[in-house]
Computed example of a mutant assay.
Amino acid sequence: MMQVEVVLALPERQELVVLQVAAGTTARQAAELSGLLARFPQLETESLKLGVFGKAVKDDAPLREHDRVEIYRPLIADPKMVRRQRAEAGKQMKKGGGH
């Protein structure tokens, strides 16, 4: 058995679950075992994106001791589209946060 964490960042809070799993457990299996997918049904489980320590991984990626599986929520807006819309509106993005 090995210990892993599964985390989900919501706009208002972060959920973290510590699990004891068998060697060979995948990122997707850990996400399901955490119960977070069941607690938050608004997550689209078919198109769910996962990562380990900030790096995207495939669902079937095997985990190692003390890995932190991150469940990524879908983006609200496509960053490329937002930049394109600003450019079309004549607003240029400036360095330093637009100051």
Rank of each mutant, 00 (worst) to 15 (best):
E88T: 03
E32L: 11
R39E: 12
P79V: 14
A89E: 11
P62G: 02
L75N: 04
E65L: 08
A77G: 01
R73W: 13
Q20G: 10
P11E: 08
M93C: 01
P74A: 13
V18T: 15
K91F: 06
P41G: 07
G24I: 04
E12Y: 04
P41I: 11
K95L: 13
E65W: 01
E12C: 00
M93Q: 08
R39C: 08
E46A: 15
K91N: 11
V57L: 03
D67Q: 01
E5G: 05
A9E: 12
L75R: 09
R73H: 11
T25S: 08
K49I: 11
A9V: 14
A22Y: 00
Q29W: 03
P74W: 08
E32Q: 13
Y72D: 02
D59Y: 03
K80R: 15
Q14I: 12
V6G: 12
Q3V: 12
K80G: 15
E12H: 05
A61G: 00
E15D: 10
L8T: 11
K91Q: 13
M93S: 11
V69H: 02
V52K: 02
V82A: 14
L16E: 12
K94C: 01
V4R: 01
G54W: 04
V57H: 02
G35M: 06
Q14M: 09
L33P: 02
S47Q: 15
E5F: 13
Y72G: 13
D67F: 03
V52W: 00
E12S: 13
G90A: 03
A31G: 06
P79N: 04
A38D: 12
I76W: 04
K94N: 04
A89W: 00
V57I: 05
R86V: 00
K58D: 15
G98D: 03
Q3Y: 02
A30V: 10
D59G: 13
A31I: 10
Q85A: 13
R28Q: 13
A89M: 04
S34R: 07
M2K: 06
L33Q: 15
R83N: 08
L16P: 00
A22E: 14
M81D: 14
Y72Q: 11
E46T: 08
E65Q: 12
K55L: 10
D67E: 04
E65N: 14
E12R: 10
V52A: 02
M2I: 05
F40N: 09
T25V: 06
L37Y: 07
L19D: 10
L75G: 04
R28T: 04
M1H: 02
L10D: 06
P41Y: 04
T25A: 03
D78K: 06
Q85L: 14
V69W: 02
L37M: 11
L8D: 10
G54T: 04
Q92T: 07
A89T: 02
L10K: 14
A38W: 03
V18R: 15
E70P: 06
G96C: 03
Q20T: 14
L36W: 04
A27H: 03
E70T: 07
L37E: 11
L16N: 07
L10T: 11
L10F: 10
S34H: 05
V18Q: 15
Q20V: 10
A61Q: 12
A23Q: 05
T25N: 01
A87K: 12
V21C: 03
R13H: 14
P11I: 06
L50R: 09
S34F: 10
P11A: 13
G96D: 02
K91M: 14
Q85S: 05
Y72N: 08
D60R: 09
V6P: 07
E32V: 09
I71K: 00
V82G: 08
F53Q: 09
L43D: 01
